[in-house]
Nucleic acid binder design. Structure first.
Lengths: 121, 121
DNA sequence: TGTTTATATGAATAATTGTTCATATGTTTA
DNA sequence: TAAACATATGAACAATTATTCATATAAACA
């Protein structure tokens, strides 16, 4: 009763629960890995960025055209492209005055289409 | 030159770009669907919620035990479980005094493991 | 029935974030 | 070289959000 009694007033007398708690807690992935994972999904968690990714599925495109497709300011798009690039979801190359953006990850479309399946239910 | 000249000073003379813009813009999914998709990913975009989902992969569990596994307050966990439930990612059932939470979607583990693949690269 | 236990929830606060505006950087063209 | 164009970026502001604290709800038990 006194051994393994970590928490004071909640689920207290249940030894089975305590076993389960340690079992699950010990198997939790690294803090940093979970943080990175959450950061990745955070990037998908914005309509503008989702639209940009959708756009780049179709074709690589310069910043100005992406802004035109989405009907948003060049600055707003540029800021979001930076976020996407930091997450290694897009890459860019220069073509004269323009910077051409394209998708930089094979998992993206799978992740998104899987999310869509869930949403559509 | 005057026809199809939607934007004033950017990518202006390039008719090919204008074609591309309309092609891509017309194929964009419904605003509401994209919004829902972003909302779904937003739910994954928090370390606490990711940890809760990871925990529930292992086993269904009462609120108090989840709080214990994560070393967080019961209130914080309860708030987050509500978010997860609204997103239909978890469900609950009553068992006496306790409420037992479990995963409520087959896509979740696929989505998360795919995200992990990307992060690990 | 009254007390204890487990969970939920509203309000408040601190932190994060998306867009706008102004401007800087870097390339092309006249 | 100067002007025009495409993109990037810092600061500011508004909006959203995760946690805490206090308290409400609801079941179990004495």
């Amino acid at each position: 009763m006194h051994i393994d009694d970590k928490h004071a007033d909640c689920c207290d007398e249940n030894v089975v629960h305590d076993d389960l708690i340690h079992l699950v807690a010990d198997d939790m992935p690294e803090e940093e890995e979970l943080y990175d994972l959450a950061e990745l999904f955070k990037v998908f968690g914005d309509t503008t960025r989702i639209k940009i990714l959708y756009t780049l599925f179709k074709s690589e495109m310069c910043v100005c055209d992406i802004a035109e497709v989405l009907g948003m300011s060049q600055s707003a798009i540029s800021h979001q492209l930076r976020v996407l690039k930091q997450a290694k979801l897009v890459r860019n190359k220069r073509d004269g005055k323009q910077i051409i953006y394209s998708l930089d990850d094979v998992h993206i479309s799978k992740i998104i289409s899987m999310g869509l399946e869930h949403v559509k239910e």
